[in-house]
Design a protein around this nucleic acid. Structure first.
Lengths: 154, 154
DNA sequence: ATGCTTGCAAAACGTTTGCACAGGG
DNA sequence: CCCTGTGCAAACGTTTTGCAAGCAT
């Protein structure tokens, strides 16, 4: 995570807090700081763990209450792979929001395609729907796994 | 649910059971029968509830064990809207598998588009990925809700 | 000072599992 | 008969909530 991105994230949080008229607390900034240090996709539990590791006294409930705030402010994005838990990723200024998910090794390949955006607009228009966001996930086997096991997932 | 579709569903289950060499039990048929009577998208809990309502003595565990079987046999399809629970829908011979989800009223508009299929293949090829299934969901406001509240979801 | 936020623990939730019994082959 | 499949209840792991205390405004 580069300095510029961190800066943008904290700015976004500050702006969000001001706009919503909610309080600027240390807990919220600490959760954000830790979230920015986690790699790719992470879960609430990892945020909590890293907070503890750094000696920050932030409760589990606060983490669970803050992450949706960070999503709402546009800093993070929810990514849902399974029903077990919610995953998050840094979203500010990142455009790759669609995924290829390997059923065997679990690898997640993110991609971006102008065609997806175009298609999304076209379909929305056809149904007179006002699109705010979309999810496009392709599930199957990545090249490596497909080569090792041509028969597909067990 | 028309008679022909019910018939096809039970045939599919029978074929699946034969192919896998697993047992043809009453519980599995009862779960299917009830699933076919549930509207659009439903959850495990609704299956259980309707079974109880009809006096069928089928345990919760059996429902949770059978639904994935019905998915695997191609009769049902998993649909994931939120992380809370898994939703299911009848899938046999139905081609509409993509959705427009209204954030305000919760309405789900299913659609089908050859372009989605084509795009999916193209993207998979670009990444040398072997696609098995995909998910394409557009979230926003349906025409009715957008008209009533132009500012978007609260 | 006021009341939004927090932390803790306990509850809630959908789902899974251990086990003895039932029932299909 | 054997062994898979079932039902019950208890376990599970993530997320939510009730409440008293803490801290931003």
């Amino acid at each position: 995570m580069e300095h510029a991105e961190r800066r943008a994230a904290f700015d976004a949080l500050a702006g969000y807090i001001r706009a919503r008229g909610i309080r600027d607390t240390q807990a919220r900034r600490k959760v954000l700081a830790v979230a920015l240090d986690l790699p790719g996709h992470f879960e609430a539990e990892q945020v909590l763990y890293l907070l503890r590791e750094r000696g920050a006294r932030v409760g589990k409930a606060t983490v669970y209450r803050t992450l949706p705030l960070l999503v709402d402010s546009g800093i993070l994005q929810e990514v849902r792979f399974d029903t077990k838990r919610v995953h998050y990723k840094f979203a500010l200024g990142r455009s790759k929001q669609d995924q290829l998910i390997c059923r065997r090794c679990g690898r997640i390949i993110e991609f971006e395609s102008a065609d997806v955006t175009a298609l999304r607009s076209r379909i929305a228009a056809e149904h007179r729907f006002h699109v705010v966001s979309h999810r496009f996930q392709l599930s199957g086997l990545c090249h490596t796994c497909a080569t090792n096991c041509p028969l597909g997932p067990s």
